[in-house]
Nucleic acid binder design. Sequence first.
DNA 1: TCCGAGATTGAAAACCGTTTTCATTTATAA
DNA 2: TTATAAATGAAAACGGTTTTCAATCTCGGA
Lengths: 144, 144
Amino acid sequence: MSTEQKQKFAAYIASQGLKATRQRELILEAFLAQAEHPSTEELYLGLRKEHPGIGYATVHRTLKLLAECGIATVRNFGDGAQRFEACAGEHHDHLVCTGCGLIIEFENLQIEKLQEQVAKSHDFTVQDHRLELYGLCSNCRKGE
Amino acid sequence: MSTEQKQKFAAYIASQGLKATRQRELILEAFLAQAEHPSTEELYLGLRKEHPGIGYATVHRTLKLLAECGIATVRNFGDGAQRFEACAGEHHDHLVCTGCGLIIEFENLQIEKLQEQVAKSHDFTVQDHRLELYGLCSNCRKGE
DNA sequence: TCCGAGATTGAAAACCGTTTTCATTTATAA
DNA sequence: TTATAAATGAAAACGGTTTTCAATCTCGGA
Ligand SMILES: [Mn+2]
Ligand SMILES: [Mn+2]
Ligand SMILES: [Zn+2]
Ligand SMILES: [Zn+2]
């Protein structure tokens, strides 16, 4: 439920001496409502329909704030733009279709465990990781 | 041996109706000689010491050519710049230290296999993938 | 060897997503 | 209500990449 995220954001804002503004509220709502992996631009264009006054910089700044406080994750699927995704519960990785842009999410605990082992064997402490499989979905394969 | 790569490049250039130039030769040599994961800028600055006339655009264009013909891979470790790496034999993935920038390479066949399984279970054909583990190397962990 | 079509080069400008700047507006504690 | 500091939107700056363009070079054919 989005109330949870709103509270989390409010708490973070308070804890950092920041201010609760109309724009931040709007942007969080739009972010939670929007499609899966929006870029700043996409979210900004969506918002502007309802709220023409809103600024691109504010949208981007707020998305970074959301990432800071753990509501969003920053993704990068190699299209040159940062994308943002709500941290809904479980961690997951992505299959990205190079044909149509389709993104499928998956989690695989075995892979995660093996990653930990690899890190340990090199005396590394993992803070984060990215795993993306690029290829063709079944539709795009047919279309070839 | 670098002769192999030179031949591969020569063959590719011929096959595409491109031309063999002094610059391309120089850039390939520098690329093969340089450190592990150079950016265009880094390679360019290195080259300029010996060959002040060389242009940034030419370096970048040539690196893209090398990627096209399978001599180089494009990497992106999240520092905002494309990095290039010689495709020396085996595929590998990376551990990236967020403290000092150290990069450790690894390969793990179990992970690769599991990736294939994941893809298959979603009816995906994998063309490429990226796996990076970000964290702290033992040195940087001590320094904290 | 020389020529000419067409590719390549380097410098500079354009590009594009991100970040900063700055004058103005707004939130919040007193 | 007021004072203070933060936030906003527009525009400029930024930084890596890509394009443009006139000059230069490559290489197959004469
Ligand atoms: Mn996702
Ligand atoms: Mn490597
Ligand atoms: Zn597809
Ligand atoms: Zn380190």
